[in-house]
Design a protein around this nucleic acid. Sequence first.
DNA 1: GTCTATACGTTGATAGAC
DNA 2: GTCTATCAACGTATAGAC
Lengths: 204, 204
Amino acid sequence: MKDQKEIIREANELKIMEAAELVFAQFGFKGATTDKIAKQAELPKANIHYYYKTKANLYQCVLTRILKEWIEAAEVFDNYDEPKIALTKYVESKMNYSRCRPYASKVWANEIIHGAPIVGAFLETTLKKWLEDRVEIIKGWIASNKIRKIDPTAFIYMIWSVTQHYADFEKQIEILNQGKEYSDEEFKLMTDQVTQFVLAGAGL
Amino acid sequence: MKDQKEIIREANELKIMEAAELVFAQFGFKGATTDKIAKQAELPKANIHYYYKTKANLYQCVLTRILKEWIEAAEVFDNYDEPKIALTKYVESKMNYSRCRPYASKVWANEIIHGAPIVGAFLETTLKKWLEDRVEIIKGWIASNKIRKIDPTAFIYMIWSVTQHYADFEKQIEILNQGKEYSDEEFKLMTDQVTQFVLAGAGL
DNA sequence: GTCTATACGTTGATAGAC
DNA sequence: GTCTATCAACGTATAGAC
């Protein structure tokens, strides 16, 4: 049974986290001030510190949430035996994430660009394991002649980079698209193109 | 004829710029302090302000240099009529830039992620024009059945994202490569893979 | 749990001696 | 052109009233 305070706490924590994700994405860790986050969350600055002891702590929480979602999106890869379906679904899942959570993707990119000081440990363990397992799956596809002979790691990097580009370089893409954000239709077309490139890369 | 002071000036400006590029890449604009840049350049902090009036000014100079190099690398695209050669050379040029100037690439990525406040104007003019011209070239290739029917813009985004990934996500790649940076041989193999993916994307 | 006022550290920038 | 000392501004974090 949740009491009143707990409900308020959870609601405020989420509100702050979403505001923080936006501000961290736009200004980086240092550039994001608690004041900006507070204004975005429509709360006084002191409340941010009440819910999250320090700015660094809040940043960690934001990254942890992104990481959890990253893993969920990656699960799609394993739900289908046929490479064509598995790859199509994975690209779709990654593109959908770029579309719906661009700020999350940007915070992540920012963290890696700056040397992964916080998520480094995760990369060494969970992500490394995930990659190794997926490399084995792809090697299996190659061995059974289902796809072309490729370097599995390079192939996965290709999928990551192309899909994440639509979130991280959103602003550049918008400017190059006559200053207009992609409509749902336009984004769907790009998703189809990315899917084709990935499948072509695998010889499918 | 350059006098002594001019020579000293140019040498120091370059030293500061290179130090700044590194520090901006590692910490972002806000996170990069003039003190860090000074230490990296092995100069007292005040000298930074002597050569570059403000931190923002120094940042602009760093971006301008990157931009100039970006344009030079892009010229390769036009030096060959045959799509297979042009694309191979362009990928090679971009991968080489990621290899030799990873900090430059990171500063650029950072700038775009944060909404391109400084280079926005360049994107709207020079880059937009460059993209439109290249789109026409690619359309020509499609019309003459030299490559598969693809969306030229999506295709160029693919080239940019895959190649830049090796600079911007360097740290992630290093961690996933048993904590070791790629050797020249390993990087060459990845360049070949990326080239294959790009050519395959074009149906070549 | 909310919020105002404030202490304390950091940092961009400058003054002024060399 | 170099460098030490210093200041003003800003930003994190907290104290304490409500």
